[in-house]
């Protein structure tokens, strides 16, 4: 399989949000605006690429029975590294995403890819898989964030489109997250079906 193919697969065929339905908590919890969604997506991508590469490097050395705990330690370390880096360089985004940054540890996408892809493939392929899945996730979160921000706050990436308007508040709050994700999933399914 070519590298490009692996990346494209991650974005479309194995899209973690719309097709695999993994990592739902940050998907709904952080997409109150397009910027937050994108930030969360990129943060997850960072951890995913690093953990994929390291796990594929170490997979042969780790005894089978302690595989999962070892993976969790590796993933948790990268998440903490990310936490520290974000606090230092993008403190505002870190404050906005809050609890969901440490929770990347238990994002099933990461452990899922480690088990399904990284421990059977070469580090380079695993990196590509990380990039693809990460971008697919980022793309999905950005689109969801965009729709929710537009409907709920009448703004686009933080720019107010209509003055004085308040938008439909429910879309920024919890119910909107579920409903927008549900409808976007339908749209994504329709689009990808036609392509096939």
């Amino acid at each position: 399989m070519s590298k490009l193919r692996i990346i494209a697969n991650g974005i479309i065929k194995d899209n973690p949000t719309f097709i695999l339905v993994l990592g739902m908590c940050p998907t709904i919890g952080t997409t109150t605006s397009a910027i937050n969604g994108m930030g969360m997506g990129l943060a997850t991508t960072f951890v995913l690429i690093l953990s994929n590469v390291f796990i594929s490097l170490l997979a042969k050395m780790i005894p089978d029975k302690v595989r999962i705990p070892a993976y969790i330690v590796i993933i948790a370390s990268f998440v903490t590294v990310l936490e520290l880096l974000m606090q230092a360089y993008v403190p505002d985004l870190y404050a906005a995403l809050g609890l969901f940054i440490p929770l990347i540890v238990v994002n099933c996408i990461i452990l899922g890819r480690a088990e399904a892809f990284a421990n059977k493939n070469t580090p380079l392929d695993s990196a590509c898989d990380g990039i693809g899945i990460g971008l697919g996730f980022t793309l999905a979160l950005t689109v969801i964030g965009m729709v929710r921000e537009l409907l709920g706050n009448l703004s686009f990436f933080g720019m107010k489109l209509a003055e004085g308007g308040d938008g439909m508040l429910a879309f920024v709050l919890a119910p909107g997250g579920f409903i927008v994700l549900g409808y976007l999933m339908v749209v994504f399914r329709k689009l990808t079906q036609k392509k096939a």
Partner: peptide, 21 residues
């Protein structure tokens, strides 16, 4: 057909969340 499975579950969850609001 397009709503089968997860999408309809999500929309339902949204309505349930609205009730909890």
């Amino acid at each position: 057909k397009a709503f089968k499975g997860t999408p309809i579950a999500l929309v339902t969850a949204g309505i349930l969340a609205m009730a909890f609001m």
